[in-house]
Design a protein around this nucleic acid. Structure first.
Length: 444
DNA sequence: TCTGGGGTCCTAGGACCC
DNA sequence: TCTGGGGTCCTAGGACCC
């Protein structure tokens, strides 16, 4: 995210910064998506589980009412009572969420010349107008998105992104707002009261670590932070937190990013294992498989990678032994998206990562990271020594797309997924928007 | 050959977000 | 307080250059 430096903030001559910023975010997005094609779920408590049906990553308001702390809880711990309480659980269905997100974002975008799609379920847009006009626009956006997609959204408005986020907190706390709130509509005294009621760690960009340090300085609420000395905050913390201070005062420091998220700057494929791994050959196979998967993502986005990193970590306090993690990064001989080159790099890293015979360390997770990415087209083929095998990646990707991920691969990465490794998605809904076979059937 | 100052590039790690 | 996977930005410090 590109950001303005507070020092350069003296004069606002960009008309955009004089308008308002609205944060449009979906209510319990994944849970709402599950409802879109299964109306019988309306009004019922729904939760959506992470990969491997591990823990709760989304919960409908009804589910949060039953257990306000349900987010993040491991499924195996809550399965029994969930079923008894009538909570409906679903495995995450990212194909469905991705396609619904695109529709929602397109509708939101029609209401403004400036839109930043911030995440799968959140978008910032620029709005002009004031007072009741803004509220009316917000309500119009809500009803249009609901009508064309079935997904409920909130519209939170403020002079800056940070204040729009504050308005979003207000909507969540106050049902009477009916899904729309404009922070600027309050008087200065009211604004101060509202900010004084918000713990500083509820703010966008302030988490528990920073919260503890702020508490030591006597800064506990959003109002305390707004009224703190920005220069001192910058010195003691960072430019990031100093920007938050100014944003709370209504001075925009965090730009609206209009460009659609271009290519990723970094790609990661990481997974926890279903059991702890201790043997070098197991680690070698995992590394090769993950390198292959991250390579597929690389080619899909049309990039070349300049660096590869492999890291591995134990659980946090794995049976008494302290948590341990290790990581090795190498620069690739030349930027590449070639599966053989990537497999070679992974194989090169491996002995450096585990120099000895994994002395009693029980690894729980491993990740392969590609860095220093650039568009494939911009890099001329200069490496005289590389064979003419540029088509290999495309060929492999074509085969895996038709026949499945395990159909073919390079080296040990080409082995079939061993039993017990497949991702668990026991409660998967239909991919109703992206697969012909899984279309919704409407009763006549 | 250890003595000043300044700059850039790279990497590791912290912190945060959804 | 540690529950899963995938990201971004910023800072400090080391290597290296003139």
């Amino acid at each position: 995210m590109r950001v303005l430096d507070p020092q350069s903030l003296g004069i606002q001559d960009d008309t955009r910064t004089r308008g308002s910023i609205a944060l449009v975010d979906c209510v319990s997005f994944y849970a709402s998506c599950e409802r879109v094609f299964e109306p019988a779920l309306d009004g019922r408590p729904i939760i959506v589980l992470s990969n491997n049906d591990g823990c709760v990553v989304a919960a409908s308001p009804e589910a949060k009412q039953i257990d306000p702390d349900i987010m993040g809880k491991p499924w195996f711990k809550i399965e029994a009572w969930s079923r008894m309480a009538g909570v409906v659980a679903r495995s995450s269905n990212y194909e469905l969420y991705g396609s619904l997100s695109a529709r929602v974002m397109a509708i939101i975008g029609k209401h403004s010349a400036w839109q930043e799609v911030y995440s799968i379920d959140e978008s910032f847009i620029g709005l002009t107008g004031e007072g009741f006009e803004l509220i009316a626009t917000g309500q119009r956006i809500r009803s249009e998105v609901m009508q064309s997609t079935g997904v409920p959204v909130r519209v939170a408005i403020g002079a800056t992104k940070t204040l729009a986020k504050v308005a979003a907190l207000g909507i969540k706390r106050t049902p009477e707002m009916n899904g729309v709130c404009d922070f600027s509509a309050y008087t200065p005294a009211q604004q101060s009261r509202i900010l004084a009621s918000i713990p500083v760690t509820d703010l966008w960009g302030v988490a528990s670590r920073t919260g503890k340090k702020l508490a030591a300085l006597g800064i506990f609420t959003a109002k305390d932070l707004r009224d703190a000395d920005a220069a001192r905050i910058r010195k003691r913390f960072s430019v990031v937190l100093a920007r938050t201070v100014l944003e709370l005062r209504g001075i925009p420091c965090i730009e609206l990013e209009m460009q659609p998220p271009a290519q990723k700057e970094q790609l990661i494929f990481s997974r926890s294992f279903s059991r702890k791994l201790t043997k070098p050959d197991e680690m070698a196979q995992v590394t090769a498989m993950y390198a292959q998967r991250v390579g597929q993502r690389l080619r899909k986005q049309g990039s070349l990678a300049g660096m590869m990193q492999v890291w591995a970590a134990t659980g946090w306090a794995d049976e008494g032994t302290p948590p341990h993690s290790t990581s090795v990064t190498v620069r690739l001989p030349a930027p590449t998206d070639d599966p053989i080159e990537l497999a070679r790099a992974a194989a090169f890293i491996l002995p450096k990562l585990f120099p000895k015979e994994l002395p009693g360390v029980r690894y729980a997770r491993l990740g392969v990271v590609l860095n220093d990415l650039r568009p494939a087209a911009s890099t001329p083929m200069l490496d005289l020594f590389s064979a003419d095998d540029r088509e290999l990646g495309a060929t492999l990707d074509g085969i895996t797309q038709k026949l499945g991920r395990d159909a073919i691969g390079v080296g040990v990465g080409g082995l079939k997924t061993p039993p017990g490794w497949e991702m668990k998605r026991a409660m998967l809904s239909k991919r109703a928007t992206t697969e012909w076979d899984e279309l919704c059937e409407a009763a006549a």
